[in-house]
Design a protein around this nucleic acid. Structure first.
Lengths: 189, 189
DNA sequence: GGGGCCATGTAATCGGTTACATGATTGA
DNA sequence: TCAATCATGTAACCGATTACATGGCCCC
């Protein structure tokens, strides 16, 4: 139930409406979590029902501002003190690489190179995000920068890995095992 | 619908039963994807219905072996040629770090250090996995090793990051902004 | 005989995505 | 006036997790 805690965390900084929280999500923690408004609105209601947040009166265009309660703060603290979650092991891109062996060697190389390029693009996107966020000097900004740096390091490592993986395939350590579209008469399948 | 393709990929190597595929999942691609038997059995049935696999006769204890069809191979190729998936941006651990700022400085450090230790454990687990897998010399083994190396690099980068993040907090660049349990009389909150 | 593993299934529930749907406000 | 953006909601569906449930086979 991470969405709930993410919302509590965002509201711990300052109150906000569902719409606003949806937008905030795309910025700072967008790097590590995402949520759509269709998920956020009902969740905020449920949280109000559980006394984790209080719902303000309806404003301008149906706008309703939520504020974290002391119960909400307690829950947030409880979450942060709970055992560390396992890493989830669900990476579709890596799964694809795992099965690339069924393709001819050239296609494998093409895939790995496109993957490397994609990671490099991701890295550039993170830099753009960094420039876009109005970093302050508070403690939450420090953590935000640390998490962004995490994304940068991770993405950069993956870009390097993909390039390295392409080299491994290219280097021919296994030229005879990967199926080769242009395989000579001697090399078999 | 990655599970379907993951199963096709595993069956592309050799046929197997639902039980066996569940076990195989934990090994080679366990690093990057996971699936439980309760998900695998019904999916194999549906896949048989879609002619992606053929179900063999019932064996010893209800065991039924599945084999990939040419339609299944086509679908697997189609998947590998489809546009690269976006990276999912769903990392609960990073989300937690993002909200650590609400804790006192010492607890932040404690968390980051435990996270670094966890990554180091993960890295050791990957090495154990490596030792456990019976790597052959085929093309699928090459890709398997590449994907495992991906996990190693990623995990190692994250371990370094967490240690670095702890240093950043410790280094006091922000000692006055992160709440400090032992804050002197002058430093306020 | 019994413990452990092989082997398969179902049902409830949950979190998330996608699509559908509506309308007010603001500024060019 | 019209487009963009603010602002909120619902419903269908889907993939995944958890728990429940059953029973055969093999070896000690």
């Amino acid at each position: 139930m991470s969405l709930r805690h993410a919302l509590l965390g965002l509201l711990a900084e300052r109150p906000g409406s569902g719409y606003e929280l949806t937008k905030r999500f795309e910025l700072a923690p967008g790097n590590v979590w995402s949520a759509s408004h269709s998920q956020i609105y009902p969740e905020l209601r449920r949280m109000a029902g559980d006394d984790l947040v209080t719902a303000g009166d309806e404003g301008p265009r149906g706008r309703r501002e939520y504020e974290i309660t002391t119960t909400g703060f307690d829950e947030l603290h409880r979450w942060l003190a709970s055992p560390l979650p396992e890493r989830s092991a669900r990476d579709e891109l890596a799964l694809r690489v795992f099965f690339l062996w069924i393709l001819p060697r050239d296609d494998v190389l093409d895939n790995l190179e496109r993957i490397a390029a994609m990671y490099r693009d991701d890295l550039a996107a993170l830099d753009r995000l960094d420039a876009q966020v109005h970093w302050g000097e508070g403690p939450s900004d420090l953590m935000g920068r640390l998490v962004l740096e995490r994304g940068r390091r991770s993405t950069s490592t993956m870009a390097d890995w993909a390039a390295w993986a392409a080299d491994q395939v290219r280097a021919g350590r296994d030229a005879t095992t990967l199926t080769d579209r242009l395989a000579g008469p001697d090399s078999g399948a």
